[in-house]
Design a protein around this nucleic acid. Sequence first.
DNA 1: GAACAAGCCGTAGACGCTCTACGTATGAAC
DNA 2: GTTCATACGTAGAGCGTCTACGGCTTGTTC
Lengths: 116, 116
Amino acid sequence: MPKNPEPERLELLQGTLDMLILRTLQWGAQHGHGIGQAISSQSDDLLKVETGSLYPALHRLEKRGWLKSEWGISEANHKAKYYQLTAAGKAQLSRERDRWTQLVGVIGKIMNPAAE
Amino acid sequence: MPKNPEPERLELLQGTLDMLILRTLQWGAQHGHGIGQAISSQSDDLLKVETGSLYPALHRLEKRGWLKSEWGISEANHKAKYYQLTAAGKAQLSRERDRWTQLVGVIGKIMNPAAE
DNA sequence: GAACAAGCCGTAGACGCTCTACGTATGAAC
DNA sequence: GTTCATACGTAGAGCGTCTACGGCTTGTTC
């Protein structure tokens, strides 16, 4: 009997996690655990962010000033650090989105020239 | 006087170089230097592959059996190692292309939900 | 009240890929 | 015979993701 299908997670491309985190926070402040789950669910579980990637990324983004944090209480009544976008973070998201669009366009053109 | 525009190269996303190399070889056998130039020109010079990335990538791909190589003489009359896709390489390209498409789709959906 | 799952934060270290910075050799142009 | 483009390559740094831990708190089950 074959194993369960297991949708074969997509590994993240390096550099996309920061953008996805910033994007997720555009929907509103969120704590780390919640951000990870949001990315998972918004991608129909194709993307999964490991905690060993997630928390260093959040610290990194905060250190760069794209995010600011504040302790609070989660919906599940747990202590949680809530992150939200700063103005600089919004600008950064915009830059990363542009870059992503450009990259997808260029690579798409190479991979599938007919589509032009 | 401002510096020349300099189109701000796009750094490659990690993991895409292998796919681009395989794709380039789908157009026919090519040597390393030529592959780098092809990627540059096909991307309107937005992408640039450094030799320190390119050659290790080629060796890596050959070791995995996606490519095979053969010494020859380039159009410019230089000794050059020509690479071509193996059957396994074609299969790999197909997998990477699917993965790329899926990833772009998922991320696009997160970044720009309206587009659905 | 003990045991256990779930929620939430975090770090350490391995791994893999790209980059910068070198180094070598050959052929063509002048 | 010097200079430039062509062509191959390596060494090592840097960075981001992953695996694998560990810790604490709240809620549930028996």
